[in-house]
Nucleic acid binder design. Structure first.
Length: 214
DNA sequence: AATGTGGGCAACCGCGGGGTT
DNA sequence: GAACCCCGCGGTTGCCCACAT
């Protein structure tokens, strides 16, 4: 930790700081975040500035509540991708990885019945011991089962419940345009969305529009 | 009304990858 | 090829607020 690093402010952003950051981005664009504290009077490090923009200030970020459609999409994507929040967020328009991660850890874990203990429920009461605190604040992501990408591709139930994937049908990959061979068992289709059960395949299919199998 | 508890979310931390020099 | 810088990611923490006791 250098001395200059200690001079950076931490914690919540003020409106004034937001204005400064927005002005920097307006002039210089979204790059060279580490130059911001040098070129502006902002006492924030580059990472903090980038995070503030990406998670809050960007006009692409939605700030309203998650819809049921978004939640359903996140649940299905999480089943396929695990805790790869950036990949999931990339497929939920207007949502950031942080938003998706937080929403998963707070709302969806509980909704799916995956949460066992809250971080505060783990606390042996009235203990301020730092060691104990570290244990009790174990991340909610690990509390909720940390769904890794499923190993069996046949639309197995999500841990703890199965409703979110009910109604899935295997999708005939022959209806896709493309040249590469794809294991059909990796693809599913529900009423509204296509689902690809592999990050690599997700990337591969990014360039294609699904053909409605109906 | 005061205090405790839990939920929700913004922000930080540590690490790794990619690009540049 | 090594060193450095920048960026992005996932996990973790801190703070605030609402609600319960």
């Amino acid at each position: 930790m250098t001395k200059s690093e200690n001079e950076y402010k931490k914690g919540l952003w003020t409106e004034e700081e937001d204005k400064i950051l927005l002005e920097y981005i307006r002039v210089h664009g979204r790059k060279h975040w580490n130059r911001i504290p040098k070129l502006t009077c902002l006492k924030r490090n580059g990472k903090s500035c980038r995070l503030r923009w990406v998670n809050y200030l960007s006009p692409n970020v939605k700030h309203d509540n998650f819809t049921e459609e978004e939640e359903d999409l996140i649940i299905r994507l999480h089943k396929l991708l695990g805790n790869r929040w950036s990949l999931i967020a990339g497929r939920v328009p207007g949502r950031t990885d942080n938003q998706v991660k937080n929403h998963w850890n707070t709302h969806l874990c509980r909704k799916l019945g995956l949460i066992k203990q809250t971080r505060k429920q783990r606390l042996p009461s009235k203990s301020n011991d730092s060691e104990v605190k570290r244990i009790q604040t174990a991340p909610s992501s690990s509390n909720c089962g940390n769904l890794s990408p499923i190993s069996d591709h046949k639309g197995a139930e999500v841990q703890g419940q199965g409703s979110c994937l009910d109604g899935f049908e295997e999708f005939n990959v022959a209806q896709w345009e493309g040249e590469k061979h794809v294991d059909q068992s990796l693809l599913f289709y529900d009423d509204h969305n296509f689902v690809v059960d592999s990050p690599e395949l997700m990337e591969f299919f990014d360039g294609f529009d699904p053909v409605d199998p109906m």
